[in-house]
Each structure stands twice: as C-alpha cells, then as structure tokens.
Amino acid sequence: MKKIYVLLLVFSLVFVKNTFSQDLTDEFGPDVKPKAFTYATFKTSRIVIGQSVENPAKGNLNFSISHHFGALNDGPYGFYGLDRSTIRLGLEYGLTDKISLGLGRSSYEKTIDAFVKYKIFRQTTDDRMPVSISYFCDMTINGLHFAHPEWNNYFSSRFAFVHQLLIARKFTNKFSFQLTPSLVHKNLVVLNADPNDIFILGGGGRYKLTQRLSLNAEYHYIMTSQTRNDYDNSLSLGVDIETGGHVFQLFVTNSQPLFERGFLTETQGSWGKGYIYFGFNIVRTFTIVKPKTFRKS
C-alpha cells in the first residue's frame, strides 16, 4: 500500500514540475520537420530551351511564346539575324501536381508537338530523396509538304518521338543542376545511313544572381558519331527574369528549332562559326482551377 502512495507522490511531483516549465513552446513537443518537397528548382518548365523538372501546378495553365531570331552570322545585310525568326506558341496544363500535358506549334518545319511530363520522384527538404526525377515524352508531327509528292508517302513518317529523364537537384537556394538523358526516335530519316534512334546526354543548370534574376546554361551532347558531321551539339546560355506573373527568358543558342527533336538532333552550325541565335521565351501562368481551400462552396 505504501508503495502505491510513494508512486503516486512521484507522479504528482512530475505533474507539478510540468506546471512550472518555463517555455510554453515546449508544449508543442519536439520539433518534427514536416515532410516537404523542394520547390522552385527552376523558375519555369524550361531551363533554357530544354525541359526542366518543373511542371505547372495543378489547375494552372502556362502559355509560352518562344522566339528565335536568325543567326548572328547573317551579317549586316540580315541585321545579324534579327530579320528572320522562328516562333513557337505553346500551352502546358497541370492536370495534377505530378502530370502536365503540353501542346505547341512551331513555325520551324511547321511542326506540332504534344507532350506529357510526369514527376516520378520529388526532392525533399530533408534530403531523404536527394533528387527530383521526371519523365518527359514528346511527339512531333512535321507539317511540311512531302518533298516528293509523287512517291507513296505515309502519314506516319511525319512522326518523331522523344523520351527524356530529367534528373535534377536543387543544391542550394541559388544553384540547381539537371542531367537530361534523351532518346530521339524518328519514323523517317533522310538517308539510309542515318539512325532512327539517337541517344543524347544533356545537362543544364541555373544560378540565381538575385531573387528574380538567374543565369542558366544547357548543353546536349549527341553520343559519339550517331549523326552526320553537319549536325552539332546544342549549347544555350540564358537569363531568367521574373516579374511576378511572367517569366522572361532571354538566351543565345546555336539551335534554331524550339522543340526537342529539332534542337537535340538537328542543330546545324556551331557557336564558333557564328551560328548563334538570339531568342526569348515569355511564360505567363493562368490559374484555371483554384485549390480546394479557396473554392466557394
């Protein structure tokens, strides 16, 4: 019986001790960091001209206008490339926070592109998942008239497909890097000797100079001698300027096409020879479906 009393006394003392604890924040218990995903690895869904791991959020629609001028080596007669331009208009919609669908039309080879981007893994702030990995799949349809209308042409020969894994890590608040292995499959190639499947290893990164300004770079290396010599690797440098609702991306690149199949495998002309195209993307985000908390019931 006495033992019970002693036990009760100890318990009571413990309670009393609790009563006089100094800091009320102790009441919240140990600070458990909630599981959180890293956000804003890149400012928009493209690093420069290639895809980044970013998707529009659920219910958001991105409208992008991408514009490449002509090459710098057009010289003074072509106003250093500014006389010519190729343009791509694009839409990208966040079906869920993980899946986005996109559609675009480029003036280059009158190409329509349609794509799906899926976030497989997302980097977490506690680094239990150190990288974000997305899968990107794109289909392009070449809209030019067939070069030889007298031949027996197939519609399927207009198609090409691109598969990419986007593996990115936000190392610090300022610096992010992404590895981008790609596989491009073309249903029809120009010459017999040309391969239908081409492997490309790409990489890109960004460094934030200020909260709203970042330097970006991107390079895609065509794995050794898969294509003819007149095709080059794509190198792009750019800056992102963010103004709240818009992101402006200004860049220089040696790739004229603005869609994956084009700039990955059909970049013609190198930086050294002056094949430098100035261009810009303007991305505007529209909220189509508001999050649940803000919907009027």
Binding site: T25, P34, Y39, A57, P291
Partner: peptide, 26 residues
C-alpha cells in the same frame, strides 16, 4: 496568461500556386 503562436510559413495556402512559390522563395 502566457501565450505563444507558431506558424510554419510553408503551410500557407494561396489561390495561385505561383503566388505561394514567390511568397516562400522571394
């Protein structure tokens, strides 16, 4: 009469996802 409040900034929800990102990031 002691009183404390503690708010995790990242758990603020916005009607626009981009706004939420800018709120936290910028």
């Amino acid at each position: 009469g002691d009183i404390v409040f503690q708010v995790l900034i990242t758990s603020f929800e916005f009607p626009k996802a981009l706004m939420q990102e800018h709120f936290n990031e910028n």
